[in-house]
Amino acid sequence: VTTYKLVINGKTLKGETTTKAVDAETAEKAFKQYANDNGVDAVWTYDDATKTFTVTEMV
C-alpha cells in the first residue's frame, strides 16, 4: 500500500489530500470521485516519481 497525493488547482476548490491505495490506478479512481463530488472538472496529470496527481481546472 502506497500513499498518493492529490493537488487541486480549482476555480472554487484548492488544496491537497492524500489516499492510501494498492496502485496508482486505484488512487486515481478515488481522487476522480472526490473531485467529481466537489464539482471539479479539470485536466489531470500524474507524476510517478512523487506519487502525486495534480488536477487543474480550466478557467
Rank of each mutant, 00 (worst) to 15 (best):
T45D: 08
N38P: 05
W44Q: 00
T12F: 13
Y46M: 00
V22Y: 10
N9G: 04
T50R: 04
V7T: 03
W44S: 01
N9I: 14
W44D: 00
T26Q: 12
T19S: 04
K20F: 11
N9P: 04
V59F: 11
V22D: 05
G10R: 07
L13T: 09
V22C: 10
G10V: 15
Y4L: 00
T17A: 12
D48L: 04
K11D: 08
V7F: 05
V55L: 11
V43T: 10
D37F: 15
K11F: 10
V22K: 11
A24T: 07
E25Q: 12
M58I: 13
A49I: 09
F31R: 00
T17C: 15
A30S: 07
F53G: 00
L13I: 12
D23V: 01
T19V: 14
T26Y: 04
K51V: 02
V22P: 13
I8E: 01
K20C: 12
V22R: 11
Q33R: 10
D37N: 09
F31C: 01
A24G: 03
T2G: 06
D47C: 07
A21N: 02
D41S: 09
V7Q: 04
A42V: 08
A49F: 10
V40W: 15
K32G: 02
D48R: 04
V1Q: 11
T17F: 15
T50A: 05
A30V: 14
I8M: 09
T19Q: 06
V59C: 12
K14W: 12
K14N: 10
V43Q: 09
K14C: 15
Q33M: 10
N38W: 15
T18A: 05
E57D: 10
G39Y: 12
V1M: 14
N38C: 15
A27W: 02
F53K: 00
K51D: 01
A24M: 14
Y46V: 00
Q33D: 06
T56A: 05
T52D: 00
K29C: 05
A30Y: 15
T18W: 13
E16H: 09
N9Y: 13
W44C: 01
L13E: 07
D41R: 08
A30C: 12
Y46C: 00
D37W: 14
I8L: 08
T3A: 04
T50M: 04
L6Y: 01
K11C: 14
V43D: 06
T50W: 02
A42I: 09
Y46T: 00
L13F: 15
K29F: 06
